[in-house]
Design a protein around this nucleic acid. Sequence first.
DNA 1: GTGGTCTAGACCACA
DNA 2: GTGGTCTAGACCACA
Lengths: 133, 133, 133, 133
Amino acid sequence: MFQLDLKSGVPICDQIVNGFIKLKALGLISGGEQMPSVRSLALKFSINPNTVQKAYAVLEAQGIIYSVKGRGSFVSDDDRGHSAVIARAKEDFCTAVERARDLGLSAFELKEIVDGVYKTPKSGHKEEKNADG
Amino acid sequence: MFQLDLKSGVPICDQIVNGFIKLKALGLISGGEQMPSVRSLALKFSINPNTVQKAYAVLEAQGIIYSVKGRGSFVSDDDRGHSAVIARAKEDFCTAVERARDLGLSAFELKEIVDGVYKTPKSGHKEEKNADG
Amino acid sequence: MFQLDLKSGVPICDQIVNGFIKLKALGLISGGEQMPSVRSLALKFSINPNTVQKAYAVLEAQGIIYSVKGRGSFVSDDDRGHSAVIARAKEDFCTAVERARDLGLSAFELKEIVDGVYKTPKSGHKEEKNADG
Amino acid sequence: MFQLDLKSGVPICDQIVNGFIKLKALGLISGGEQMPSVRSLALKFSINPNTVQKAYAVLEAQGIIYSVKGRGSFVSDDDRGHSAVIARAKEDFCTAVERARDLGLSAFELKEIVDGVYKTPKSGHKEEKNADG
DNA sequence: GTGGTCTAGACCACA
DNA sequence: GTGGTCTAGACCACA
């Protein structure tokens, strides 16, 4: 699974949404698989079930998961929603590049940063420390 | 000048701050030059003068501009602030890379995007439409 | 038979009820014919027997089927229920028309859609993929 | 404006979302126009601000409106989102036609119903009576 | 048990 | 003032 950083200022709901998108991107969850129930995840993270519910609603709206009343939530088989999210991520990265360029950074500098990040071991060094609640 | 995108979700204050940083980075405004008055800018963008005031305060705190009582605000000569801004820009870009990596994008893909953006002429401004308020 | 779409958001019970109504309307099942047992249907669809039970109860209440203690459920001969079902189908369609009208669609557009659907061969079943659970 | 029917069983949030979509379809609200504030609408309908907030979030996700923190919510200039909603409405109507056809109704009967609905004066006779709260 | 909706009320950033 | 997030807790339909 992933972890929450309640101190980060990033809305908990967003962290949950992004957490599952990452898990799917990494192949750690896949089509048809059952999601943890709203209540169980809320309990696990010591947060309010409404927050989890909201995150699941966003994931469902994006086509990443689907929910069946009385049965649970499941990872979607169809990857269109997930692909759309990835496509948007590329656009976002493109915007980030433009911003850096506008501030005078060179293409060389940016590519160095890219390499630097990819050479770093798995875990992002400064994000998502632990769920303290 | 630059434009505001009220729909972007980015706080107006931040957009103003970043707008002037960009202008200075591009050399479109330079040391000693007088900044537009708070009132005139607020009028031009149809936004609250307090918001402009706050943006100017941030710019001053970062050493990008300085204000002279009774005369107005001016673009700073020295580069005290500017290098800090560049450092932060690098951090922001680094974060963008990490996010893209977490979603499964490869270093190769990202570098391709970087090259694509830098090959494009200046007009990368396909976003930030207009301030309608 | 028919198929369930667990992702549709339509309650499973309703899907079963509507499925059998459709089968009878199309003449694919007829008076006196025995219905699949609750258990077998639940097994086939990998759903809760209680859900099938409830669907059968609704069908019986509408006069579409009848049950004989110890023997099972059977398709009803008479059309008591069927005409009521047709009446409700008309109401449902009427509601759909009103909704479309409220969104600005013209009567002409709707009638075109009607013609389009009726000109299509039988296989209008582009929805209702499969029960995966 | 539109009215809510708290007894209808239709989620209040959905009623608000559909209400504004209808208003836009009818041209009663248009691009750039300011939406009532979350709080004022909640007060007007005697419902919880969270419910209005949720409705506005859905409208924003669909591109029908956009929100600016501290300023308010506005009807979107760009009609792509609204058009997508209309397109989906056509699909929904198409599904309704298929369902009616599957139950044995003829194209002629359906077109009669369409004409009937469009000949009826403006207000749907059975929907959305009044907000009692 | 499951997801979904709603109220009540606190608190935050922003203008 | 504005929108946005979150908690706490009730209640519902459905399986």
